[in-house]
Design a protein around this nucleic acid. Sequence first.
DNA 1: TGCCAGGCGACGC
DNA 2: GCGTCGCATGGC
Length: 278
Amino acid sequence: MDITYNKNGMLISAVSEFNLDQTLDCGQCFRFDKADDGSWRGVAGGCAIVARSTAGGILIEGAASDDGEFFKRYFDLERDYAAIRKSYLAHPALAPCAEFAPGIRILRQDAWETLISFIISQNNNIKRIKGIVSRLCALLGEPIGGGEYAFPSAGVIAAANEDDLAPLRAGWRAGYILDAARRVHGGEVVLDDIARLPLDEAQAALRVIHGVGPKVADCVLLFGMGRTDAFPMDVWMKRAMATMFPGNTAADFGEYAGIAQQYIFHYARMNPEMCKTL
DNA sequence: TGCCAGGCGACGC
DNA sequence: GCGTCGCATGGC
């Protein structure tokens, strides 16, 4: 993997198993949208960026000139996905999932943003989740240029009330957002500490928050804390497990179960006929 | 139009 | 412990 800088921005090259469309459109993040020219515009690391696939690699515009380390971590670039994927190809049911979108990388997003985003995600659809997150940032986040806003801090949200959040049109999730903000801002929930706990303890620590159950906790651990041992089970995964992996559990998918989960989730969502119950 | 959406908490048993 | 229910909002 190489990271170089030119007049257009930061260029990430010589990385296998890294596809921008697959990574940003597989349901793990809600702050990027694809523009008409095929580029992805959104916010990462507090910067408004434009990411695009070029002949030379992935080009990031808008990143600070010393953000190579940030994006290595954000896109999980130092993990050997080729080796992980190869181990999945031997499994007859897992192979088609790992082949379908080989360029998925599990993002290491900000834990706080991931927590609120996946609280919003419950019983919701991805398009509307993006809308609510976007309105939350515009309402309470700092403008960062390019028409974008940073994700609001726990302190700012904790100072709001349900009426303040009404413009989000988040429904009953607004109370959950406030509870999360107050517990994080108040120090009862310390996300950096939780990230290092054994999986069951980390799940329990997150579930102290009203509106965080097993699925949201696992999403926060996987997409916001780099915990590839977390295995979120949403409606799509439940269908896929019942039809494609009967009798299997997260434990059957090994140390990187969360990565396998994302291949399966994305495959199931894009090929719903494969996990229809009879 | 009615069903569904990356679920969860409350409640009854 | 487990099943069921309602939940606000809007995408399709």
